[in-house]
Structure formats: structure tokens, C-alpha cells
Amino acid sequence: MEKFKTLTSVPTPLDRTNVDTDQIIPKQFLKRIERTGYEDFLFFDWRQTPNGKPIADFVLNDARFKGSKILVAGKNFACGSSREHAVWALSDYGFRVVIAPTFADIFYSNAGKNGIVLIKLSEEQVDQLLKNAQTIPGYQLTVSLEEQTVKDGRGFEAKFEFDAFRKYCLTEGLDDIGLTLRHAAALDGFEKQHDQAGWLRVR
């Protein structure tokens, strides 16, 4: 996993709440067996017409936000299906940070495994960022995971809460399975005992 410390980018304002993972990546792209190559499928139905023509008023088609690494969205972002393809699509497209008031639980886990930083700010703060990104030419945000801050260099400054262990994993780029396997001996011991519990056996 790529390490994350600080990042400065133009933010992409996605002014919608309850964005579900079916919108982030529609089902027809879940048949692939690869883990990469999902960038063109991100927000597929919102990005282009059924004939493949770009929908001009969708933010991802707005030249101002080209190359953006930060997505700003409304509350309950990425609810619904557990498809990790939603994270892969965001990541392949170039997003490293999503800022929203709240995130759905499974997406929250999936993002952490793929080095995407999810930042919760208040609804007022997110509204402000959505507005600024839309109206201020050349608007930029700087996210520091070390300081746990989001700043725009023109007066917006927000501190955010962040789970200490998740921060450690992201800043060091650590592999989750490797972390668990540090406890291999404890796991072997537990499993031996646990296998005795007949009522919890699969077969």
C-alpha cells in the first residue's frame, strides 16, 4: 500500500447525499477478475449518456477538476453494496482522499485496505468546501494526515478525527494480513480450542 502523508489538490465537488456504490460503479463492471483498470467505469451512468457521450454538467467532466485527487461529497457516502470495486474505481481514477460528513461502514473498511483516506468533516464544513470548489477559480485543498487538518490557504481550516491505528497503517503503508499474522501463535492456540466447540462447527 502506498504511504500517505500530505496531499494538495483541486477538490472535486459532488453535491449529492447517500451516493451508493451502484452509482460509483455499476454492476456490469463487476464481472472482471482484475483488481485494476476501473478508472473509466467510475460514476459511469452519471458521466456519460447510453451512447457514450459525456454528460457536460457532471463534475468529472468539468475541466476545472481534471487531475483532482480529492473528492468532496454529501453524507452517507458509498452506502449499499459491499463491492470493493467502488474503491478500486475511485483509486484508479486518481482519488486518494474523500471528504464527507459520514461514510457507510463497509466502504470505510474497503477504503482503508486500499490506501484511500476518508475524512469526516461537519455538514457545514462540507457545504463550505462544495461551494468553494464550485465558485473559487483555481481552488486548492491541502490534506495533512500527520496534522489531521484540511486547509485551503485562504481561511478554511478544519481539524478532523482519525483512528490512530488506521493512521499508522496509512502513513507506513502496512499490509493488513501481515499485521494479523504477527499474532500467528495466539491464533493457532485460539483456533485449537475453538475447533472443540461443536456447536460452532461448519459441518
Binding site: 459491499s82 470493493e84 485496505k113 494480513i177 494479523t180 499474522l181
Partner: peptide, 20 residues
């Protein structure tokens, strides 16, 4: 509960999941 593909891999490898 539902998990993503990375978590599914974690369970295949370790039969555990880190959980809060």
C-alpha cells in the same frame, strides 16, 4: 456481516478479521 474483497482475502488467509 458483509465484507469487501480485501477483507475476504484476509479471512481466507487467516480465518480472522481485524474489527472494531
Amino acid at each position: 456481516f458483509g465484507v469487501g474483497t480485501s477483507e475476504a482475502e484476509h479471512v481466507l488467509a487467516t480465518q480472522t478479521l481485524p474489527q472494531s
